[in-house]
């Protein structure tokens, strides 16, 4: 039997089918977790935010349009949830030890691969040092590929504000990452 698609699973979950919802969680948990991890920078907190995202999604399943793909909808919920958390504790830098030194790769690849991974971690660290409102626009534009208008809609903020934040965030990142150029 062919596996059910997200649309079918979402319909069944909306009518109370917990098994269908658990399948949706299984499929999308990694994507949602990565959104939370990029924004929060701490594994435990990101796992908790990802769980909370699915609970919020379950609550609002009735408002989900099944004709649209599910993953962007979930990512948007995760982004807003993390943004809310960051706004509540904006002074706490979201940078934990794990973010600085991730667990060692059991099978280290070639040197170039290691260097690239370290560069990626460094970029992520610098992203985590941005103010929440800058961080969230970087996430929406560069990792979720939303247009300016979609970002403004997702964040419920004026288009001009969103663009201004995005450009300032990039400028700040460029300054911080000068040594990598």
């Amino acid at each position: 039997m062919a596996p059910a698609d997200d649309r079918d699973l979402a319909r069944r979950a909306a009518s109370g089918d917990r098994h269908a919802f658990s399948e949706l969680v299984r499929r999308h948990q990694s994507v949602v977790y990565n959104v939370a991890y990029r924004l929060l920078g701490e594994r435990g907190e990101a796992q908790d935010a990802a769980q909370e995202t699915f609970l919020r999604a379950y609550r609002y399943l009735a408002s989900y349009d099944p004709d649209k793909p599910l993953a962007p909808w979930l990512k948007r919920i995760a982004t807003n949830l993390c943004y809310d958390r960051l706004k509540q504790a904006p002074s706490t830098p979201s940078l934990d030890e794990e973010a600085v030194r991730p667990p060692p790769d059991p099978q280290p690849g070639p040197e170039a691969q290691t260097i690239q991974r370290e560069r990626g971690e460094r970029v992520h660290q610098e992203m985590l040092l941005l103010p929440p409102r800058y961080r969230v626009v970087i996430e929406l534009r560069h990792f979720q590929n939303l247009s300016y208008a979609e970002m403004a809609e997702a964040l419920k903020r004026p288009l001009s504000d969103v663009k201004s934040d995005l450009f300032r965030a990039r400028k700040r990142l460029a300054e911080r990452l000068k040594d990598l150029q």
Binding site: R18, F21, S22, V25, R26, Q29, S30, Y33, N34, Y37, R38, R43, Q47, A50, Q51, F54, L55, Y58, P102, Q116, R117, R119, G120, E121, V123, H124, M127, I138, H142, F143, R170, L173, A174, L177, L180, Q181
Partner: peptide
């Protein structure tokens, strides 16, 4: 500016060490 665009593509996906399904359910 383009360097920032490229640098952001180097941020890699992290593996999820924990299955979230039981906790969510």
């Amino acid at each position: 500016l383009r360097f920032v665009f490229n640098a952001l593509t180097e941020v890699t996906e992290q593996p999820l060490a924990l299955d979230l399904v039981p906790g969510v359910l």
